[in-house]
Design a protein around this nucleic acid. Sequence first.
DNA 1: CTTTCAGACCTTTTT
DNA 2: GGTCTGAAAG
Length: 675
Amino acid sequence: MSEKKKKYVLRDDVALPKPEVEFTYRDELNDAQFEAVSALEGPVLVIAGAGSGKTRTLVYRLAYMVEQGIRPEEVLLLTFTRRSAEEMLRRAAGLVSGEFGRIEGGTFHSVAAAILRRNAEVIKYPNNFTILDTADSMELIGRCRSAAGIDFKQRRFPRRQTLQKLFSKAVNKDMPVEMIVYDEFPHYVEFIEPMEAIRGEFEKVKAARGMMDFDDLLIKLIELLEKNEAIRRKLQRQFRYIMVDEYQDTNPMQDRIVQLLAGEKGNVMVVGDDSQSIYAFRGADFRNILEFPKRFPGARIIKLEINYRSTQQILNVANATIDKAVEKYTKILTAIRGAGPKPVIIPAEDEAYQSRFIAQKLLEHREEGIELNQMAVLFRSSYLSSDLELELGRRNIPYVKRGGMRFFESAHIKDLVAHLRLLANPTDELAWSRSLRLIDGVGPATIDLLLGSILSDPQPFAALLKAERPKTESFQRYRTLMADLWRRRDKSAPSELLSIAHEYYEPILKDKFDNYPQRIRDIQHLIGISNRYRSLSSFVTDLSIEPQDRFAETGDETDPDSEKLTISTIHSAKGLEWQVVFLIWAIEGRFPSTFSVRSDDQLEEERRLFYVSTTRAKEYLYITYPINIYDRQMRVMCQPSRFVEELPLDLYDQWDLTEGSDEEDEADLEGDVVH
DNA sequence: CTTTCAGACCTTTTT
DNA sequence: GGTCTGAAAG
């Protein structure tokens, strides 16, 4: 009997193989990518190295979701710019047919604005609130600063620009103003009290006039979600799936928003690369990535480590840079492409030589068959491109510039739009003063007088018409315009209103700016953009919240024949790639910038910035720097950037530039290889 | 009161 | 090169 007894061991590790998940495009993804694509439930953190197919993964994930029968309106896609959201949706739509237009996508700020408009009453705001861009905030702070009645002559009191930066930083880092002052503006410690007072006034005016700055959009959204459980639950149900791109560049507030929207068991996927975090200056914290598994327990971590973009030679340089980073997620990028040519370092006599080299070399590559679209020149700061732009102009090389001064922030655009902003929010104090300031014969005193009566009246426009004081013809002209606009505000399309305002503004503009023809073209361009909008308020919102690059909408963009070089700040080059990349101004003081050398954290960020710039290149990478610069008529010798100096010698070639021989065109240069 | 002009001062990166 | 400030002229 006993020999009939047998032991039977129970095991949990036997199962039939998981049925292979079906997906039309399974073959186009590697295993890690597919894991990220098909992991829909629960929190997921994707660490995506440079060039590892991050965007591709997100795009295919959208397609996968649709194939799985998820309704597009259940998906929220948070990206760094609206453009990248649109691009992803467009590409996903090319894979499977779905209603991708119904996916809510965009920046944290634009999504926040949309949600807040629908629920403004909860946070005691009118739903027609105005959104202030940085320049608007600065101006409002300036007004509060004057109103505070501080005697500026005695000691140097911080300027409005400084105050704006400081206040914003306090919000974004979630720290008291006092602490930011001690940390970053120690020379202003004696002014902490008046600064707090100005800030209080600033906050008060914004609330009273229905205005929100960029930071408020995030703060108020958090407030809304925390305060009102019903709305929070509703949104959590609505957005069953959340995806966040460029997670390394989110700040604590944005992270909080993700948490609140995702709920406890949220299906949230964040994608990022700690090595590419370059927005700490505005409060971003790449430690959000490191902390993610703690805040979302049970989070799955997927690493994308195969680099599809660059040659091994380029990756070697990039890896050498990032190896020296103090704090990072360990990941090893492996190139799948061949070795390719070594990156080249080119010291140039001065800035002019640098520009000449760039222009000539890129034309050579073009001769070899690489289109200008496939080339880019990158720099640390926007102003470093001026000489290069002149050189490109001389040689008729077409280019688009990314980063730097923004189209919608230029004075003439803001002047014109101020008139329309008033139709959306008649208590917009800044818009009133901006438009009044343009009237001939009206100065600060008159503006104050008028503002007093306009803003205290429940019917601001009626108050304007009642005003008796400036009896000038120009003021009458202004009133006629405003009355006309006000009458048409609900009947006419934004473009029509804009044209009416333009007609009024054009003589003022001609008087005010010497380069008015260009500015008039800008305005016509703006009218063109406005044609796409049917509601004035959404047009005005987008203008402040999604400032697009100056040339972004020239119309050539969609034209495949237009072949243009890209020149860009490194920040604006994030996420992009080119066959040929030139990095200019690699000298100490410019890159890393002087302002960053003081603190270790900032220096680390410069390092990551260098990493981002080199990893943009697929095949050819050139790093140049001038040896001499002319600063206030003084010739100064430069030190090559420490990021260049520290590279192992065997990872790059160096070329010395010499003038071409006499028979050749004077502008010709030759690159001679020096081993 | 408004406009204009000269001199000082800075000057990163962006939603 | 652009913005801000103060002082003098219109």
